[in-house]
């Protein structure tokens, strides 16, 4: 059995192990669930260390990228400024003080820095993301296409504007809503949101099916032929 066949067989068994939950909760399922979570977490850590922390930080800092030629000359001189990498590395390690009851406040320095940086960046990002949407919500209520009214596009824009106003009104809590009409308008907003939630739920079902079909495709096209190939 080749290495590739072994991995396909194991992947198929793992898939069936996870799907065995559909029959009932069982140790087979739980084993593969923990295995998956462990591998997913471990992959990120190992990959980051192997591909970034070691080659981009440690190698230049330790001077391991310097090649010494037979005549004693080197490919390039050691750059002592790379030692400055230790400063952000040490600052990042402050996060681990959360595990100390006595010195947990030290971790707050790193957390505060992160929050401040993220907040500042978000301010810039917010406008880049939201402004085009605000502009995009200004739609003509009567759309002309080569001088003729495009009824389809016009009705679509009416539905859009109506939905926008009704939903915004539903979430407008500054003044109390008094009167039957105010309540009905807010109720209209709620109904339109229900339609939206229905669409979201439909999308969720579709997405779950897509996850399943990929696994079934694997089991049918790769795993089962490998099983029969190994057994024969």
């Amino acid at each position: 059995m080749s290495w590739e066949e072994a991995t396909i067989l194991l992947a198929g068994i793992a898939t069936l192990g996870i799907y065995s939950f559909l029959i009932r909760e069982n140790p087979f399922y739980r084993f593969f669930e923990h295995l998956f979570i462990g591998i997913a977490a471990g992959w990120g850590i190992v990959f980051s260390f192997k591909n970034f922390i070691w080659p981009d930080l440690m190698v230049p800092m330790l001077g391991l990228d310097i090649i010494t030629f037979p005549d004693g000359t080197t490919s390039h001189p050691y750059n002592p400024w790379t030692l400055l990498y230790l400063v952000p590395m040490a600052f990042g390690l402050l996060f681990y003080f959360v595990y100390s009851k006595r010195h947990a406040w030290v971790a707050k320095l790193a957390i505060g820095f992160l929050l401040g940086m993220a907040g500042g960046a978000e301010l810039e990002g917010f406008f880049n993301l939201i402004l085009p949407q605000i502009v995009g919500s200004f739609k003509p209520l009567v759309v002309f296409d080569e001088g003729i009214v495009d009824w389809g596009a016009s009705v679509t824009n009416w539905v859009f504007i109506l939905t926008l106003i009704l939903v915004m009104y539903y979430f407008f809590f500054t003044f109390s809503r008094r009167g039957i009409y105010a309540e009905r308008i807010a109720s209209g907003g709620r109904w339109l949101m229900m339609v939206c939630f229905g669409a979201y739920f439909g999308s969720t079902v579709m997405a779950r099916m897509a996850l399943l079909v990929e696994r079934l495709q694997f089991l049918i096209a790769q795993w089962w032929p490998t099983v029969t190939g190994v057994l024969s």
Binding site: P132, Q133, G136, S137, C196, Y200, T204, M206, A210
Partner: peptide, 24 residues
């Protein structure tokens, strides 16, 4: 993915996306 289609349509409508592939 199918589950994120409603979110993506918002950006298509506002012109922030020039094209969209909706799921499979």
């Amino acid at each position: 993915t199918s589950i994120s289609i409603p979110d993506a349509y918002i950006f298509l409508d506002s012109g922030q996306l020039s094209g969209l592939l909706e799921g499979i």
